[in-house]
Design a protein around this nucleic acid. Structure first.
Lengths: 321, 321
DNA sequence: TTGAAAGCGGTACCAA
DNA sequence: TTGGTACCGCTTTCAA
């Protein structure tokens, strides 16, 4: 590159970065640019950040749970927002080691910030990341981790909402669907706990109902519905709610008369069901807000890690409850 | 690191990489490992690949279109499969420049392979990537690109399937839903074309029906349904099909008597609708197969780029058509 | 068995 | 206005 333009590497660097502290003559600039174009020259990010001692890479390990439309949109917004702040967002992929082990692998990339969805990162992992130069570690999940900023997604609140709602509607024997799908435990467990919590000390009962996401499983559950003696169910989310509603309907169980049903996530499909599905609307932080939080943390790494509750849960009452 | 262990950097490298060409004494190994643990030492990936002249990073630009459950699962499988082959998968994020411009940014990371979903990469982009050391460039999208391997996702086939099916069922005045949602044109256009193609030369008519993904829009469309005089509709996918079915039902249009409906993607929700939704089942390549294709291409970069058709479309006939 | 040193591709200081 | 050079952290000869 430098050779083709007949100048030094330093000059190339100056020209291509428009270094303001140094003035390069117009003819030289042209020669450099031409050579660059001709060679299809592309700077080497690794070399650059090695020299600089830092990068603007934000690392986000891929979620280990199935991502629904709600969370998917959130992640996508977040990526765009970080991009606007001139960060390079890198989703680090798929399988491999878990938790603190994985943190080592992430640290090898020397990201300026790490954004960890879900649980599974411990304080040791945070330490590894910080020692390797990460200026901000942010977890978005059910619990906060020592040393890291936390966006607390409190799924108990979702269950609590649903439970209170059903109780207020006069229901007392309440079932809670618990998906058997892998990776969902960290959501379903707190949601169930939230219902229990909401109804604690009342005369209502709470029954956990494990369910796989298949028609047959739902049919089996519906078949023994009457013997369960329930009068309401929180269906984990809108998709499971739809599955269950269909099975209950085929079984002749009337909704909401015989059984009230409430879902969660407030998806479009809930509005399209008949009866229209009551649901817990979940409000996630905006991608922009989170991006700004990351940016602040990066600029001021000394600041004490903050913990924010960021999951707003509100009931949307429709016709199924 | 080297200092703490009281050995040279070279020795550290030997020990940590288990270099087989060199034998290091047991005591020294221990000292190195202890020092590494104590310092929380993590090797610097950038430095390593700078020195090595290559990496095992597979770069995948984030899709620019909304990712549904089908494609999402595919991507997730792919990441896992590549991980098993010891590649580091990096999803490069969100917004920023498009197409050949973006290729420059990707090339800065010097990935060993690049996997581009959707359209938007041109031959120039491929050249940039290859010149920067990418040993494989694979596009997965509607068309193949000079110089790159291609996994052709032929969405015309989806429309073709749907169109033929409706025709075979005796329908002649066929509507095709075209989503107004951003980023879906590259799917909806070929699907519409596929229907046209299937019915070309017959006595059937094809009517494009633009539709936003909202209840009101669907209601408006349903309100003028009778004047449209259609007897069937290909609803783009199962979610749009559900939206439309609901609106038609509310309008008193009977399915399938007055209007046959077929969706696409073969989602669970189609089976839960009443009438059960006919749909076009789309078969994507397995993540493992694609990962192996990438691996082969990386090992033998000389091989001529291959083009595979990888989108199997078959009708699943249920009750709505 | 270990260490010294070169070099990967950039950036930034200092000298010319 | 430019070039020489040191250095970022690591791997890999070559010598000791």
């Amino acid at each position: 590159m430098a050779r083709l333009a007949g100048v030094s590497r330093a000059t190339v660097s100056y020209v291509l970065n428009n270094t303001s502290a140094v003035r390069i003559s117009e003819p030289t600039r042209r020669r450099v640019h031409e050579a660059a174009k001709e060679l299809g020259y592309v700077p080497h990010a690794a070399a650059r950040s090695l020299r600089a001692g830092h990068s603007r890479m934000v690392l986000m390990p891929a979620p280990t749970f199935p991502v629904g439309p709600l969370y998917g949109q959130f992640l996508s917004d977040l990526q765009v927002a970080l991009g606007r702040l001139d960060y390079t967002v890198v989703q680090y992929g798929g399988a491999g080691p878990y938790g603190d082990e994985a943190a080592r692998a992430w640290a090898e990339l020397r990201p300026v910030a790490v954004l960890v969805p879900g649980a599974g990162l411990g304080p040791k992992g945070v330490t590894v990341l910080k020692r390797s130069g990460a200026r901000a570690v942010v977890t978005l999940g059910p619990e906060s981790v020592e040393g890291a900023h936390a966006l607390l997604m409190d799924h108990e609140a979702v269950g609590h909402c649903a439970g209170s709602h059903l109780y207020d509607r006069g229901r007392r024997r309440i079932g809670v669907l618990v998906p058997e799908e892998d990776g969902l435990e960290s959501f379903s467990t707190p949601r169930l706990a939230g219902v229990r919590h909401a109804l604690h000390g009342t005369d209502a009962t709470v029954t956990a109902l494990p369910l796989g996401y298949e028609e047959e499983a739902a049919a089996r559950l519906a078949a023994r519905w009457r013997e369960l003696g329930l009068d309401a169910v929180f269906a984990y989310n809108d998709e499971y709610a739809m599955l269950l509603m269909r099975a209950l309907h085929d079984e002749g169980v009337r909704i909401p008369e015989d059984a009230a049903v409430i879902g969660a996530d407030d998806l479009m499909l809930g509005r399209l069901l008949r009866p229209r599905l009551s649901t817990v609307h979940i409000e996630l932080p905006s991608g922009r807000d989170l991006a700004e939080l990351v940016d602040h943390a990066v600029r001021d790494p000394g600041a004490a890690p903050e913990t924010h509750k960021v999951l707003g849960a509100t009931v949307v009452h429709r016709d199924s409850s």
